[in-house]
Write a protein that binds this DNA or RNA. Structure first.
Length: 292
DNA sequence: CACTCGTGGAG
DNA sequence: TCTCCAAGAGT
């Protein structure tokens, strides 16, 4: 039995009942969920996604509201630029695609915030197109089951897509299921820390397990910089203040948020550069969320 | 290509 | 406590 068959049969029995897998879930919903899921765990996304889609059921609904509302509705999902980019994508979809989320990978890639993964995920999961979809879970499963390595190492877009293409079944529907299934397997069985090989449909054919779990010696993924004391933390503090405020946040309110003025200024100007904050003078001088 | 960009939960 | 890591993308 092929690897994809094992995965698809397992998926049919074990897929979690996630919102974006319900029948009739919109392409817009898929796009929103994929934005939110970029580097944010499923459990934190689910409640925010529901709120978001209730408030903005189509791209046009979101485009009609200011970007600042999108950033507020993002709450603390992290990487708030994604909210800005999603609002921008909604505007582009409304103005240039007749309000319909595009189904072609090329058109999706042209949207800000949509990269290699998200474009293919939308084309495949929302529209049933046949493409390889490669995320961190997929990469880990392939590294272990096929290459016999405990970790996937740094992403290599071209090679990763090729590897997935070679494993994917020919038939379009089965290919879509396989894309979802191998991700799901990586998410709940072949996890990064403690894989549950006893529950894995690939256990018998897994190259990593077959060679008794050799230690991974290849190139390591870039280490994530410490958050504590980082510019990201300072940005987070400043943006949280702006998100909660009703009017402009003044310098007097920003200053006590962080002791180091150099770092504080750097964080503030980077928020302005990113378009998350803009300078306002009414009714008092300060910074507000960009309403575009 | 290396670096940057949030936040919170699990182990 | 502290480290790791989570459906990535842009520069």
């Amino acid at each position: 039995m092929d690897l994809w068959q094992r995965v698809n049969e397992w998926y049919a029995q074990n897929a979690r009942p996630l919102p974006w897998r319900e029948p009739g879930f919109s392409a817009w919903g898929t796009l929103v969920s994929e934005f939110m899921l970029q580097q944010t765990p499923v459990t934190r996304v689910i409640p925010r996604l529901a709120e978001w889609l209730e408030r903005w059921p189509t791209p046009a609904h979101l485009a009609a509201d200011p970007a600042s509302e999108a950033v507020r509705a993002w709450h603390s999902l992290g990487y708030p630029r994604r909210a800005l980019w999603l609002h921008r994508a909604a505007t582009t979809i409304t103005e240039k695609h007749g309000g319909v989320v595009p189904r072609e990978v090329e058109a999706l890639l042209a949207l800000t915030g949509v990269g290699d993964y998200t474009a293919r995920a939308v084309a495949v999961f929302a529209y049933g197109e046949r493409h390889p979809v490669v995320d961190t879970n997929t990469r880990r499963v392939i590294a272990r089951a096929v290459r016999g390595q405990g970790e996937a190492g740094p992403p290599q877009a071209a090679a990763d897509l090729r590897a997935m293409s070679e494993l994917m079944p020919t038939e379009t529907l089965a290919a879509a299921t396989f894309n979802a299934g191998i991700m799901e397997l990586g998410a709940i069985v072949c996890t990064a820390r403690s894989p549950r090989c006893g529950d894995c449909p690939l256990a018998e054919i897994c190259a990593w397990r077959g060679s008794n779990y050799p230690e991974y010696l290849g190139p390591k993924k870039a280490v994530q910089k410490k958050y504590e004391g980082s510019d990201r933390q300072v940005r987070g503090l400043i943006l949280a203040a702006a998100r909660e405020a009703t009017g402009p946040v003044t310098d007097a309110e920003i200053t006590p948020l962080w002791p180091d003025s150099t770092q504080r200024d750097r964080a503030l100007s980077s928020l302005v550069r990113d378009g998350l904050l803009v300078v306002s003078t009414e009714p008092t001088p300060g910074y507000i969320l960009n309403h575009e």
